[in-house]
């Protein structure tokens, strides 16, 4: 029996929608799940890290097996495995989508945790009326408004009777409210917030971008060449000047701005970035292994 094989023939792992069987099994699973969680709280401190290590290793093992095990090719839905190896291969292939769901759901809970943490900080500020608590109130009110109107809009659109909402003419207060908050405010503030950096880059470049050393000079000259190559007009004029000297001489043609920046990108910039990347890659592989085996502190120490 494959818990992960999500096809609809009735099995122990599923039950018809709305049936008593499903309700009972859901309830039992909830009680067992909570029971295990509560049971874990009684585990002696020295065993805790082994629980975390076991879970981490088990989760990682799935994708290691997914990688090293042969995968079924041209498999029909009715095909049955021939032997244990093929059975394992089918099991892994069938399980992967469920593992994806599992990852997305747990990641979803993690996002929820981030928001809970944010709310915790700001509610505490409001409750204690700490300095600038009014801004915390603004944050909480904005969040509540967005949640209320965003979800109400979603619910309205779920209703088959409201298919006309695709057209703005049929909008009500909820739809206008959600649009004003999301499209009018959030999206434009998102754009505004990120565009501010341009001012700081400009100011920092003017104040600090100096040819004080060999390294700084190389960086400055390359940045200038790349920026000039991004300007079509400069590129056009530069190329015109080169062409006026000679159109056939390969050496002279190599001094076109596009040729210089292309050569720099292809010969130095890309390999330099790859050099960094390869260095990072070695570390990444080592980190992956350390996380999987819970040797990394953030991965498994309890």
């Amino acid at each position: 029996m494959n818990l992960f094989l999500q096809v609809d023939p009735k099995s122990f792992w599923n039950a018809p929608h709305g049936s008593t069987e499903l309700t009972v099994k859901l309830f039992a699973a909830f009680i067992i799940g909570i029971g295990i969680a509560v049971g874990l709280t009684f585990i002696p401190a020295q065993l805790r890290k082994w629980v975390v290590r076991f879970v981490t290793f088990g989760a990682g093992l799935f994708y290691v097996l997914f990688w090293i095990f042969p995968r079924p090719i041209s498999r029909a839905p009715t095909d049955a495995p021939r032997g244990a190896i093929e059975g394992m291969s089918f099991w892994i292939a069938d399980s992967q989508p469920v593992i994806m769901t599992l990852t997305n759901v747990i990641a979803g809970f993690m996002i929820g945790l981030g928001i809970y943490s944010l709310l915790r900080v700001h509610f505490s500020k409001i409750a204690k009326q700490q300095r600038d608590w009014a801004f915390s109130a603004v944050l909480v009110i904005s969040m509540l408004l967005m949640v209320t109107l965003g979800y109400a809009d979603f619910l309205q659109r779920q209703d088959p009777a409201n298919f006309g909402l695709a057209d703005q003419k049929n909008w009500g207060l909820v739809n206008y409210g959600k649009d004003l908050l999301f499209d009018g405010l959030l999206q434009n503030m998102d754009a505004g917030m990120f565009s501010i950096v341009a001012f700081y880059i400009m100011s920092a470049a003017y104040r600090a971008f100096r040819a004080r050393s060999i390294e700084a000079t190389i960086l400055l000259v390359t940045a200038l060449i790349v920026m000039l190559s991004l300007m079509g007009v400069v590129e056009f004029m530069w190329s015109g000047a080169i062409d006026s000297i000679s159109k056939d001489n390969g050496l002279i043609q190599s001094f076109k701005l596009s040729a210089i920046s292309g050569w720099l990108k292809g010969t130095i910039q890309t390999p330099a970035i790859r050099g960094i990347d390869f260095g990072v890659g070695i570390g990444l592989l080592a980190m992956g292994l350390r996380l999987w085996l819970s040797l990394e502190k953030t991965g498994g120490e309890a």
Partner: peptide, 30 residues
């Protein structure tokens, strides 16, 4: 939210990524 697992699923079984997902056709419900 889990881009890593989702892309592996797309590579392995693209239909499974859409399983359970609803979309809104014009002129009818989800």
């Amino acid at each position: 939210p889990s881009g890593e697992g989702t892309i592996v699923s797309i590579n392995n079984n693209v239909r499974s990524v859409a399983q359970g997902k609803k979309d809104f056709p014009e002129g009818s419900g989800p």
